[in-house]
């Protein structure tokens, strides 16, 4: 790769690694090891196609799409059902009530996400974490808009069932 492009890529990778990792952690239901693998693979794909990828209007958004597709492909490759929820990484150090609330919210939410089917989880992450529209979500997942709507309704119902009112309480405690 041309040196300037390598520079450009590395700057991109350095600034996007954290957001990608956060998305990947939600996609994997908190499996941070798998999340790292997914981000690594995503950044690798971005490197390979960087000449073109860097010219799209929003390479950061493009990378997020690549991440989601990598995640879904990974699921297909594993074809072994749900991956176990990995050991949750340590909650940021600190003390006090707010930290325990953060930890509780995290555990509760990740547990609920991990119970969703991978594609449902991807819909939730794209729609409610990345704030993508139905159409954008469909494009990222290479499915129809109606399929996204169906999955979205199903996922929200499941999450309501799992989280109930506790979600509002946990969120409002912050």
């Amino acid at each position: 790769m041309h040196e300037d492009r390598t520079k450009e890529y590395l700057h991109f990778a350095a600034t996007r690694a954290a957001p990608l990792f956060r998305s990947a952690c939600l996609l994997t239901g908190g499996d941070t090891h798998l999340a790292e693998d997914l981000v690594q693979e995503t950044l690798g794909k971005m490197y390979v196609t960087w000449r073109r990828a860097s010219r799209v209007g929003n390479p950061a958004g493009y990378a997020q799409t690549v991440l989601v597709r990598t995640f879904l492909t990974h699921r297909r490759r594993r074809s072994s059902g749900e991956a176990p929820v990995g050991e949750l990484p340590d909650v940021p150090t600190g003390s006090g009530e707010s930290d325990s609330d953060t930890a509780l919210l995290r555990l509760t939410l990740l547990d609920a996400l991990a119970r969703l089917a991978p594609k449902d989880r991807a819909v939730v992450v794209l729609r409610y974490w990345e704030d993508r529209s139905i159409e954008e979500t469909a494009d990222a997942m290479r499915v129809s808009s109606s399929a996204v709507r169906t999955r979205s309704v199903r996922a929200l119902a499941k999450l309501r069932e799992l989280l109930g009112d506790s979600l509002a309480e946990l969120v409002s405690s912050h």
Partner: peptide, 18 residues
């Protein structure tokens, strides 16, 4: 709130991606 609690070694991850 949950997503923002995840952090990793960005430098290592970027290097691994490269």
């Amino acid at each position: 709130q949950t997503g923002d609690t995840f952090s990793t070694d960005n430098r290592a991850l970027a290097a691994a991606g490269l």
